[in-house]
């Protein structure tokens, strides 16, 4: 029974896997809130968003697998940390609620216009994009509304929201690194969208002197290995196990 696969890196497979890994890892992070969110309503909201993202990942892995000859489960469970090409941003730990919301907002403000732009092209990913944009539109709205309330809420919620932005901003430039045969999102458009919300939220956009990267090339922060250890545990321990 195979316990680790290697994946041929065609341009389409690389693109689909990068988008799939982003969605799966962020979806997994959000699923960690299940049963732990501040209120019941938000517990369901975060779980819903997690399921949207994992659904997107499944479609993208299925597409990538058709190119490389793997199943979606093999791509999710049988690759090692260095083979995952997700953004460093999405693997960052949940932190407090403000950090979770800020992470979702910064990613959604990028991926929502991305899916819309991609859905309008004639790409192998266009059908997936057309479905995903309805989900990402809600993720952006939900995270933006919360960020506004946290930033413009109490002194403590403002402090936490600003601290989350300060912590996460050095992971945002990586989103704009080009992938093969991909549509490009103008960083200036993203910054303008982010600024609009941050102004409402009375938060300050950080200007970090230095930006992390390497996620697309498999060079991850120390957090991804722990996430994969938990996510892949069952398939690693009982290879080929099914429900």
């Amino acid at each position: 029974m195979t316990t680790t696969i290697t994946v041929a890196a065609t341009p389409l497979a690389r693109l689909a896997l990068a988008r799939a890994d982003d969605a799966l890892i962020l979806g997994h992070r959000l699923s960690e809130w299940c049963g732990h969110a501040p209120i019941l309503e938000e517990d369901l909201s975060l779980a819903n968003i997690a399921l949207d993202l994992i659904g997107q990942a499944r479609s993208l892995y299925t597409l990538a697998g058709a190119v490389t000859g793997h199943t979606e489960d093999q791509l999710a469970y049988l690759r090692d940390e260095r083979q995952f090409s997700n953004l460093l941003l999405v693997e960052q730990p949940n932190g407090d609620f403000a950090l979770t919301i800020a992470r979702l907002f910064l990613y959604s403000a990028y991926i929502d216009p991305y899916w819309r732009a991609l859905g309008a092209t004639d790409s192998a990913l266009s059908d997936i994009a057309a479905k995903a944009e309805k989900e990402s539109g809600y993720h952006l709205r939900h995270s933006a509304e919360w960020l506004i309330r946290l930033g413009d809420g109490t002194e403590e919620s403002h402090r936490r929201a600003q601290s989350a932005l300060d912590r996460l901003f050095p992971f945002t430039a990586e989103m704009f690194d080009p992938l093969p045969d991909d549509v490009a999102i103008d960083p200036a458009d993203w910054t303008a969208e982010v600024d609009t919300i941050l102004t409402h939220a009375t938060l300050t956009r950080p200007s970090p002197a230095w930006q992390h990267n390497g996620g697309r090339a498999g060079r991850h922060t120390e957090h991804l290995g722990h996430l994969l250890a938990e996510m892949q545990h069952l398939q690693r321990t009982h290879p080929g196990a099914t429900w």
């Binding site: 209120i39 309503e41 369901l44 909201s45 819903n48 509304e145 309330r149």
Partner: peptide, 20 residues
């Protein structure tokens, strides 16, 4: 019913809790 800070978040909570 849902608990929420204001109408906007109440609408999102209602969508998330009752239209899954």
């Amino acid at each position: 019913s849902v608990h929420a800070a204001d109408a906007t978040l109440a609408m999102q909570a209602a969508r998330d809790v009752y239209t899954r």
